[in-house]
Nucleic acid binder design. Structure first.
Ligand SMILES: [Zn+2]
Ligand SMILES: [Zn+2]
Ligand SMILES: [Zn+2]
Ligand SMILES: [Zn+2]
Lengths: 165, 165
DNA sequence: TGCGGCTTTGTTACTCTATACCATGATGCC
DNA sequence: GGCATCATGGTATAGAGTAACAAAGCCGCA
């Protein structure tokens, strides 16, 4: 039973998204093994559901999908899995949407920076060189010690700009 | 009936906070006049309540305080006022806290960037030179048109670092 | 093999945040 | 005064997140 199709994966379906998912799971296994953490069935399932699309997905949407599998899940089930996945760096939270998205680079810890398309909902994780450092160093000048950062830009992706015009 | 005191204003009460509030209101009047917008009694009151502290305040906390005034307010009352105040640039939303804080520079539109202390709750609005531009230009390289940005850094302010140590 | 401690999950019941919707009232322009 | 527009009141409900406690699974060790 395929979780995803090329069509549903990305509004602009131009890649083999099934590969995104299987690849993400495989890498998650490796990351968890490395960390000595247990990627249980629930956690793996939630990760798959998060990876169903490149658009951030809400916790309650995950919950619905879990229930369609026949499992009787409640909110804590989902939130606990998400918490674990975030601790492992496998999933990031999109603050401006109260939603979650899979990380394409879980092997190395990083500050996540996002471009969020307001038309198609897509989220693209980027890393602007020196940006995180710049924020931390400016904060340090003010005596502030940065522990975590959130950088999210909203607007229109290139595809949606063309479509809308 | 004074809205605020020096003590309650900032965890590290080292300034005349009453002045912050009256100044903020005065400038809000000017900004609204400039925009041809109406700073009604409700909106002014909500703005005052937001300015009660330099820590972001939740919508329902504002609601409680409104009710203590004797007014029978409901959530939409608060959210509508906040929406208006944000449109006018008088208030910013802190995404990582689902809370709102007054803008110290409402006269000129800008992207708000914040340092958020996890110990005392204080929010300091900063503007890191070139940061917004850098984000927008990197996005543009990827064909993405940025409409709005969120930049929030969490950690410890200088005072709380000393206190904790 | 069975015991004891730890981690993970199930379940219930909330709290907090935010919005949809419709009715009512105020404002200002002609 | 009539009318459009803006602002508020008020109810109900949707959406997001957590507290608390019980049950089950896993692991190392006797
Ligand atoms: Zn994909
Ligand atoms: Zn798009
Ligand atoms: Zn102040
Ligand atoms: Zn502090």
């Amino acid at each position: 039973m395929a979780l995803t199709t090329k069509r549903s994966a990305r509004p602009h379906g131009d890649h083999d998204h099934a590969h995104c998912v299987t690849d993400a799971i495989a890498r998650a296994e490796a990351v968890c093994a490395e960390h000595g953490a247990r990627l249980t069935e629930n956690r793996r399932r939630v990760l798959e559901l998060v990876w169903q699309s490149h658009a951030p997905v809400g916790a309650y949407e995950i919950l619905e999908r879990l229930r369609k599998d026949g499992t009787r899940a409640a909110p804590p089930t989902v939130y606990r899995a998400l918490e674990f996945l975030m601790e492992q760096g496998l999933v990031h939270r999109i603050e401006t949407r109260n939603a979650f998205v899979g990380c394409p680079q879980p092997e190395q810890r990083h500050v996540a920076q996002y471009l969020l398309c307001e038309a198609c909902g897509d989220a693209v994780e980027i890393e602007i060189g020196g940006l995180a450092r710049k924020i931390a160093s400016r904060a340090a000048e003010l005596g502030f010690a940065v522990a975590a950062q959130t950088v999210e830009a909203r607007g229109l992706c290139s595809r949606c700009q063309q479509t809308g015009a």
